[in-house]
Design a protein around this nucleic acid. Structure first.
Lengths: 217, 217
DNA sequence: TTTGGAATACCTAGTAACGCGTAGATCGTA
DNA sequence: TACGATCTACGCGTTACTAGGTATTCCAAA
């Protein structure tokens, strides 16, 4: 650690100035925290990592230029003992587990009370993982609802379908037979209990399967 | 006006505490503003309108219980000279014009610099409408892209389609013939230059046609 | 080595949607 | 009143998707 007993160096990353400002004003009142900067995209984080030398990064996910997930990976490659705490509006399990898989130490929803951020920072600085209430609930397997998870190939197909491609288009793109695409699509619908293409698209949109995709229709 | 020369009474409404806190911390530095409260849903605004007596309401759109549009309408019914300034992440023309049609005096995107909020407040208090840069650009008709707008009926059909209904379902729901639904659908696709159902769904989701709809697939 | 999931592919029949086109009924307004 | 826009509706041939299946290959785990 670079801070035997000094304040925890916190970097705030969010493309919405209002959010960044809000977090900053909350954290400024704690004298064991030092805000070393606020940035608005992932690229800037990677660029200024050495200079700012943060212990904890509060990282938004959806940002222009470079998203939070990519930035998280790149930061951890360069400085593996940085503690990354993801801040996000999205509470779907796909987002949360994806963030954790990319190396984030915690996940806090933007609709939690502001002082919970301090709890999260303390936790990750102790080396613990931290999930806010909503995030933990979302990840927990629900009793009656053992959601059958999609295989990798099925997610790929779902992504394509949600982008507006026909079965034939998907078949060409993935270099497989149309029949195969039909089978995957059939299985996806069965697993998710969705009957329409519109439903598939909404699922993909709401569960982050499309993350990193452009918005072209 | 209830404030001949006193400070402007500002009410902040946002379901994300971090955003509310951020706005508050920005506005607290202006001594001609008085923050009379922060609420997290539209219902609370309507309930406490008399008590808080705000001159300006900074209103988020997407909130649980009661959204910003409904709240705006209800507030203006009760106190027509309240100035409502919408704060939103969404920059699609549908959102913006919808907000203005519901009586909002201004529209500010959440990704603008924080001090622009003060400009917006000053503007609406002078009785002017205020659109932040991104919002104004989004509303302005683009030269090469004279987006043909959807008729009311077409929006209705689009909503149904995006909810996952088949043409037949829509026909039953709207009590019209399947042929008619097909025609509307055809015209919508032509106008928006979209070829797939998935595209329609994404358009509906991203442009707020589905606002106020539950999330059931 | 056997088992099982995943990915691949095909069959059949039926239903839905698409892409052309055409056209009557309203309604507001120029 | 005549025009334009909107909403409504239909024909017809083609293509796409759906809902039941079954089956083969591959690879990893038991």
């Amino acid at each position: 650690m670079t801070h035997p007993n000094g304040p925890v160096r916190v970097l705030i990353v969010d493309d919405h100035p209002m959010v960044a400002q809000g977090i900053q004003s909350v954290l400024e009142s704690y004298d064991d925290l030092l805000i070393v900067g606020t940035l608005n995209n992932g690229r800037a984080v990677v660029d200024q990592l050495e200079t700012l030398n943060p212990d904890v990064i509060l990282m938004d996910l959806n940002m222009p230029e470079m998203g939070g997930l990519t930035a998280t990976e790149m930061v951890l490659e360069r400085r593996p003992d940085t503690h990354i705490l993801v801040l996000s509006m999205h509470d779907s399990p796909e987002y949360i587990s994806s963030a954790l898989n990319h190396g984030a130490m915690g996940y806090v929803l933007k609709d939690v009370p502001t002082d919970e951020i301090k709890l999260a920072i303390d936790a990750v600085m102790r080396g613990e993982k931290y999930l806010c209430t909503g995030a933990a609930e979302s990840l927990a397997p629900k009793p009656g609802e053992t959601r059958e998870s999609l295989t990798g190939r099925e997610q790929t197909v779902l992504l394509q379908v949600a982008q507006g491609k026909s079965n034939k288009d998907v078949a060409i793109a993935l270099e497989i037979s149309v029949r195969t695409v039909e089978t995957h699509r059939k299985n996806i619908k069965r697993k998710l209990d969705i009957s329409s293409t519109a439903g598939l698209t909404r699922y993909a949109l709401e569960h982050g399967v499309l993350q990193g995709t452009g918005n072209a229709l």
